[in-house]
């Protein structure tokens, strides 16, 4: 049964918002990213609703994020508010999350997208290549570079065996 656009947004927007946040690292940007991707999907809804609309939205999000990054040349804004919260909450989960947040900011959007797709969406490298519209070699390179940079800035996230296992 083909669902309406409204039903699609209601059902899938939580997952899309999570992915968007991981891609951008900023709630405002993530919200704008989801909004832009959904607006574009709405324009082509008749064409994409019979296929896999969520994949279409995700692909739009990945490409839009890279496009925005190119335009603003990685003008990252510091989230002072989050740092203050880190001082007040020292639970292990929060510490891990903040470490991840800081580490992901050191990646390029493509590296970030590959990391998110590979280790959050659990896609294979071929599926990542298909989602990003690039070659498998590109995915491997971005994944490798991304992990290496993460290990450099946040070694607690990627242990040594992880890097060896990816080679």
């Amino acid at each position: 049964m083909v669902e309406s656009f409204h039903e699609f947004v209601v059902h899938r927007s939580p997952a899309l918002c999570r992915t968007a946040y991981l891609l951008t690292g900023d709630h405002q940007l993530a919200e704008d990213l989801v909004q832009t991707a959904l607006a574009r999907t709405y324009r082509h809804w008749r064409r994409v609703r019979d296929g896999n609309p969520e994949a279409y939205v995700r692909r739009v999000m990945y490409h839009q994020q890279v496009s925005w990054w190119r335009r603003r040349r990685l003008v990252e804004r510091l989230e002072a508010e989050l740092t203050e919260r880190a001082d007040t909450d020292h639970s292990e989960a929060t510490t891990l999350r903040l470490s991840l947040d800081a580490a992901l900011r050191q990646l390029t959007p493509r590296q970030r997208a590959v990391i998110v797709l590979r280790y959050y969406e659990d896609l294979t490298e071929a599926q990542v290549a298909d989602a990003l519209g690039c070659t498998l070699g590109t995915v491997k390179r971005h994944g490798h570079d991304g992990l290496r940079r993460l290990r450099a800035v946040a070694p607690e996230l990627v242990d040594a065996t992880a890097e060896r296992s990816t080679r």
Partner: peptide, 10 residues
Amino acid sequence: RLREALRSTA
């Protein structure tokens, strides 16, 4: 740990 951190953040 990376997967765990990603899911926790999401």
